[in-house]
Write a protein that binds this DNA or RNA. Sequence first.
DNA 1: CCATTACTTAGCCATATGGCTAGCAATCTC
DNA 2: GAGATTGCTAGCCATATGGCTAAGTAATGG
Lengths: 111, 111
Amino acid sequence: MASNLDHFFSALADPTRRAVIARLTSGPASVSELHAPHDMALPSFLKHLGKLESAGMVRSLKIGRVRMVHIEAVPMAEAEDWLKTQRRIWEGRLDRLSALAEHLERNGDHG
Amino acid sequence: MASNLDHFFSALADPTRRAVIARLTSGPASVSELHAPHDMALPSFLKHLGKLESAGMVRSLKIGRVRMVHIEAVPMAEAEDWLKTQRRIWEGRLDRLSALAEHLERNGDHG
DNA sequence: CCATTACTTAGCCATATGGCTAGCAATCTC
DNA sequence: GAGATTGCTAGCCATATGGCTAAGTAATGG
């Protein structure tokens, strides 16, 4: 089966790949631009790019001999949503323990 | 080195472990309660629990012969924050791009 | 105190992951 | 068109991961 989340989270479980994502948030880049800051042979780095791409977090297009890579929205949002959902349920449970405080705070409605 | 995020995300990259987290959001449970819905030998399942615990997402306490497991807040929030941060930067960039596009359009800068 | 319950440890196995080198392929540039 | 640039493929290697069985330990219950 292997849900999308499997691939998304495991893609993010590596600092090199997170760095690539972080870099790509500020705009598309070529493979060698992305590779430059990483002290690693290019083929090793390409495997990381491959994972990001097959997780759907990134897309790329080759023009001439240069491949430009850009970030893709959806997976990031999905992963974030999963975490958000879990946290909401979990916090909801905690919140019931301090329901009164929260209720009072909401009644204050200062914001 | 291996940052916290490494462990957090890789802990979440497995459906069994996500299911455990999801289960634990609705309250603590014993090892065998957690194991029950998973078609897997107990030692295999214990490895998953071990990863969740060493990622700091879960804590446990053994009372008598039963080990009770409960979820831990911080890591979930950290992982979510990382995603949120990336998405904000990325969306901010899209906003600037579409602002530019709008600006150009208003200026009659097209066809 | 003996059996059962609830883990725990040890060890095996197959596959995946993350790194490398060497060498191929395609495309600019002069 | 020769050579540099940019990327891709193939294949090797060590370690990690995720599953298993078998056997051990530590409470609890009868």
